[in-house]
Simulated assay, not measured.
Amino acid sequence: MATLQGTRTAADHDAVIAEIEQAEGYIASICFKTGPPAAVGVELEFTVHQRDDPAAALDPARLCQALGDHAPPTLRADSPALPLRSGGSVTLEPGGQVEISSRPHGSLIELHSAVSADIEQLTALLDRVGLVLGDTGADPHRPPRRMLSTPRYDAMEAAFDRRGMSGKIMMCSTAGLQVCLDPGPAPELPDRWAAVHALGPPLLALFANSARFAGAETGWASARQRAWRGIDPSRTRAVATDGAPPAGWARYALAATLLCVRRPDGAWDTPSGVTFADWIRGALDTRPTYADLDYHLSTLFPPVRPRGYLEIRYLDTQPGRAWFAPAALLHALLADPATVSRVLELCAPAAGRWVEAARDGMADPVLARAARAVRELALARLDLPPHLTEAVLEGSTRNG
């Protein structure tokens, strides 16, 4: 999604970063664009399947034919990569999962209208060649199989393979729903940052829908989150919420290991265990630039990632148009300081229960109480037409 607040100004991207403090200051300056919360957006990922044989491997030529001029360059090098009719851009994940990234919108009503139209268009494009969108957070039919080959994805898979299969599963077999919100005014940022993290375990439990993966029951409510938990924790664990958010995020980013280093020729692989801070200190043959730091930030996958806006990443994708329910709940729960304060109170008993949320979902009584409480809080604060309120209620009660 495009940046929600303001225009990014950055240092010369080709300049070398000589000191840790330079990198920390740069990260803090670009990742939280504070101001009145004005916009909301979503990024929706879907696995893609043959309508008559959902367990069959996805044919890239067939997918390319379906997407036409909306195909991203990773699938068709000469594609103009046109946005969908309501402005959403189409990208692909390594296993062929399709992602719609909306434009930022000024209200939930505008967001619902635009994204619904884009999903309808994408569904029709796929239908022409017998393809359909999946409706869960992990592929219930197929084992992981990479469809796209790029230097980035080659390096990612090599790095993740050092820890087992979880990385490949994440890359090729999972689909998430990301909600993007403004950070809010600077004085409110610490509480809003804490609140979106506190909401993580309850909302993960409430919307978990990927118990089945590759033809078998996993025993987890969210096999998607199980896969994410098996990846290098330096880039997937939650960011600390104590202290100033920009400083905490800068520390997190510099302590994360390098996933890849871009090179004009050859593989982008990196030595195991080298962090970005190590790179600044001379661990590799070259020194990093601000462009390298920007790229490194794009390889970090915590439950909430600041990108000028807050990218909330912990939710399984939802079936059909049910994506609107979690987006609306999160928007309402960050509506004002009083609501944010109440969120922190209601979620306190569920603090840190990420594993329980992914494994047990709403069967965990602590998480279930917190999830139902914040759902009721959000519903009381929503100001939507009746049919959209009903959609939020229906979409948020599937699991209890």
Rank of each mutant, 00 (worst) to 15 (best):
M1C: 12
G6I: 05
T7A: 15
Y26R: 01
A28S: 13
S29D: 12
C31M: 12
F32V: 09
T34K: 05
A38E: 15
R62E: 11
G68V: 09
D69M: 02
H70F: 07
L92S: 05
P94S: 11
V98H: 04
S101F: 02
P104F: 08
I109D: 13
G134C: 08
T136C: 13
G137M: 08
H141C: 06
P143Q: 14
A155L: 04
A159T: 12
M165G: 12
G167A: 10
G167S: 07
K168W: 00
A175P: 05
Q178G: 06
C180D: 08
C180E: 00
L181E: 01
W193N: 08
A195Q: 06
A198H: 08
A198L: 06
L206D: 00
S210P: 06
R212L: 03
A216C: 05
S222Q: 10
R224L: 05
A227M: 02
A238S: 15
P245H: 08
G248V: 01
Y252L: 05
A253I: 01
L259M: 15
C260K: 00
R263C: 03
G266A: 11
V274T: 14
F276H: 07
I280A: 06
T286Y: 01
L293E: 04
Q318H: 08
P319D: 06
A325M: 05
A325P: 04
P326S: 10
A328S: 15
L329E: 10
L329A: 11
P337A: 11
S341T: 15
L346Q: 03
P349R: 08
P349M: 08
E356L: 09
M362P: 02
D364F: 02
V366A: 10
L382E: 06
P386Q: 11
E390S: 14
V392A: 11
E394D: 14
S396W: 03
T397F: 09
G400I: 01
